[in-house]
């Protein structure tokens, strides 16, 4: 899979700031933005930035990685249930895979997701780290 520069630019609000939406009709919190509320199916355009706090719903340590991610293996992907309600798929970082548990509180950080050779674009985006390791780690 090749990451395209236009994609990275178009998705910057979601990748760097977790910009979602809040449905003005039913109050549903939505990530990523859909412009149609998945709950009430009405049009929604109100941007709402999510807190980036949540907990691990499930996780997997990838040992055999797809093309473009081989150099990062092993790495751990997870589905995070954000405190506002939506779930999001992301890598976990700053934690040994043996220490990961379902229900573990995590928070969003901005990290490099992948590079494409020496000359290709570098994709940045969200990963999640355990809350208790976060303070002062940067």
């Amino acid at each position: 899979m090749t990451t395209k520069v236009a994609d990275d630019w178009r998705l910057r609000g979601q990748r760097y700031r977790l910009e979602g939406e809040r449905c003005e009709h039913c109050g549903e919190m939505i990530f990523p933005p859909r412009d149609i509320c998945p709950a009430c199916k009405k049009p929604t355009k109100t941007t709402h930035t999510l807190s980036g706090r949540g907990e691990v719903y499930t996780y997997s340590t990838v040992l055999s990685a797809p093309q473009g991610f081989e150099v990062y293996a092993p790495y751990t992907v997870a589905i995070i249930k954000l405190e506002e309600g939506p779930m999001i798929t992301a890598q976990l970082t700053d934690v040994a895979s043996a220490d990961i548990e379902i229900g573990m509180p995590v928070e969003m950080v901005t990290r490099r997701i992948r590079t494409q050779g020496d000359d290709g674009p570098i994709t940045y985006g969200y990963k999640f780290r355990p809350v208790f390791l976060g303070q002062g780690a940067e």
Binding site: V62, P66, V77, T89
Partner: peptide, 28 residues
């Protein structure tokens, strides 16, 4: 990588998700 196209390219595959990993998330 081609098979991963069955998933959401912008919000699953972009995070290093393989098709196997999606099933692994469910199994876990």
């Amino acid at each position: 990588a081609a098979l991963a196209g069955a998933a959401d390219a912008e919000y699953e595959v972009s995070q290093g998700i393989s098709f196997v990993a999606l099933n692994a998330l469910l199994m876990q």
